[in-house]
């Protein structure tokens, strides 16, 4: 009797969790459609709130960041729009809509600053790092890892077969490449700051009474190299550095 009750309880709890998950999915879908409808009606402020709530529930969904970026752009908030697009590209690195809108948004910026990113040659050499998102990297790593150990097992039983030897070497190399890429994403992500206000001042030190070294305008992208309480140390190019107030920029971890 006890065993029957236990099994019944397990089945009921599993069914309940499945039903709850489906209900949550349905609710998200409704919210998504509602947010899109709000956007299409031109009520961008409300659409922005709805997309933000959806992103809280689905933090790894690049499409939501894309829609959020469009909403910011319609509201004229250039820095936030570019930040949303760049965050979206982290999850959808090959999405052409995202790339096109990011390029368009960058044409609206005032400052003549090269966007933070790798050199095209580096992007070509380490293409898997820039053209695959983290999910794809993990998936690829798991599959290649399986192939590696399978080839190892084959070598136990088919001694002297060169094919398994080279398969072993090849898969090991791929594990190193994909593993290093994932490690860089996880352990040392590059942080960029996007100017979120019409104009901000970059100081020589992390104090407002220090010398203003230069000014940046909405949408400018700079690399963050240090952080100190409410201040960020940024690098404009190889020589220009300065401090800016954290509250005036949007941060994106690549």
């Amino acid at each position: 009797m006890n065993r029957i009750s236990f099994i019944t309880a397990i089945i009921l709890s599993l069914s309940l969790s499945t039903v709850l998950a489906l209900a949550s999915e349905n609710q998200s879908a409704r919210n998504f459609l509602e947010a899109n409808s709000t956007f299409q009606k031109g009520n961008y402020e409300d659409a922005l709130k709805q997309y933000a709530q959806l992103i809280e529930k689905h933090p790894g969904n690049g499409h939501l960041y894309y829609n959020q970026g469009n909403t910011y752009l319609r509201l004229g908030r250039l820095g936030a729009a570019i930040a949303a697009y760049r965050q979206g590209l982290v999850f959808l690195p090959r999405n052409q809509d995202l790339k096109a809108n990011l390029t368009y948004a960058r044409t609206l910026t005032k400052d003549d600053i090269k966007p933070v990113g790798a050199h095209p040659l580096v992007e070509t050499l380490f293409f898997w790092h820039y053209f695959l998102n983290q999910h794809e990297l993990v998936l690829a790593l798991v599959v290649i890892n399986m192939l590696f150990w399978l080839s190892m097992a084959c070598r136990l039983y088919f001694r002297g077969q060169r094919m398994f030897h080279w398969l072993n070497v090849g898969t090991f190399g791929l594990i190193l490449a994909f593993g290093a890429s994932l490690l860089v994403h996880r352990v040392a992500p590059q942080t960029i700051a996007l100017v979120n206000e019409p104009e901000i001042e970059v100081y020589a030190a992390n104090r407002v009474d220090s010398v203003v070294r230069f000014k940046l305008h909405a949408g400018s992208e700079v690399a963050v190299i240090d952080e100190n309480q409410n201040w960020l140390r940024i690098r404009l190019d190889k020589t220009q550095e300065g401090w800016l107030e954290k509250s005036k920029v949007a941060l994106v971890h690549l």
């Binding site: 998504f32 956007f39 499409h63 894309y66 829609n67 999850f91």
Partner: peptide, 21 residues
């Protein structure tokens, strides 16, 4: 003229696989 591409409205974009899922 220049303008941005439209928002993504397909409902299946919510089910796209991501590592955090």
């Amino acid at each position: 003229g220049e303008d941005i591409s439209p928002i993504h409205e397909e409902i299946n974009v919510l089910n796209a696989p991501f590592a955090s899922n």
